[in-house]
Write a protein that binds this DNA or RNA. Structure first.
Lengths: 119, 119
DNA sequence: CGAATTCGTCAAGTGGCTTTACGAAACAAC
DNA sequence: GTTGTTTCGTAAAGCCACTTGACGAATTCG
């Protein structure tokens, strides 16, 4: 992912930032909630969000419903980056399909989905 | 793995140490070679090996064939830890077998092996 | 209302890593 | 055999993604 991102001009991202973009992404979530989901401290997330905001990938706006909190909005640059990430994933899936064959790849995918579902 | 290790008295290990024990383990390999395999710098590996040696998990002995080099030997405590790790893996496999059924688990396992083989 | 929880942030510290630099041993060329 | 190059491990310094502790402000609860 990082390689593809750098190739597409998002070379100001590094490995730590990928955590924030991890599915389903940070859009419209509160920093506290996201930190809990990613299992890092609120401070650590704040540090990463500060960088990503500075680089134009997202914004932090006051939460209209709670004057203590904020909400994360993915900006245009962030959405473009997410698209590149999706393309990278699709690329891997294509390669695996070639290696295993379409039928067995589908099997693998379904097994992993089942495994994850009950977790 | 870390949880099981701590439960079994190996509570002086942390997540970074697991890298060193990663299959097929560091036994009888040179630090340079192991660092390359793990994709970290020789210095970083030296740092971890120093800790593990201090804690009694392994030893560094001069390589008889090359007076520049050393060889890593897994000590008794290290072998015991590796056994616990293997048990933890077996535990996961058992759980997955229960979730998926024996036949589908075997399928999953084979698909992953095939995928890895051609990598 | 008052007390307790939750929000994000400031500050300080930590540790697993990196890069740079090095001396010693092995290897290659001739 | 000597000389230049590569490879061995290590020493030193710096980096940065995290942690814990503490805090004021807003919210929620009894």
């Amino acid at each position: 992912m990082l390689e593809r991102l750098h190739e597409h001009g998002f070379d100001d991202l590094d490995a730590a930032h990928l955590l924030v973009f991890q599915y389903p992404g940070p859009h419209d979530t509160r920093p506290s909630e996201l930190a809990a989901r990613l299992r890092i401290s609120k401070q650590a997330l704040g540090y990463l969000l500060g960088q990503l905001e500075q680089l134009g990938y997202l914004e932090r706006r006051p939460d209209p419903n709670d004057q203590r909190g904020k909400r994360i909005l993915v900006a245009r640059r962030g959405k473009r980056a997410i698209r590149v990430i999706r393309e990278a994933v699709a690329e891997v899936e294509t390669e695996w399909t070639q290696r295993l064959g379409a039928k067995r790849f589908t099997q693998l995918r379904q097994l992993l989905l089942d495994l994850n579902e009950q977790a």
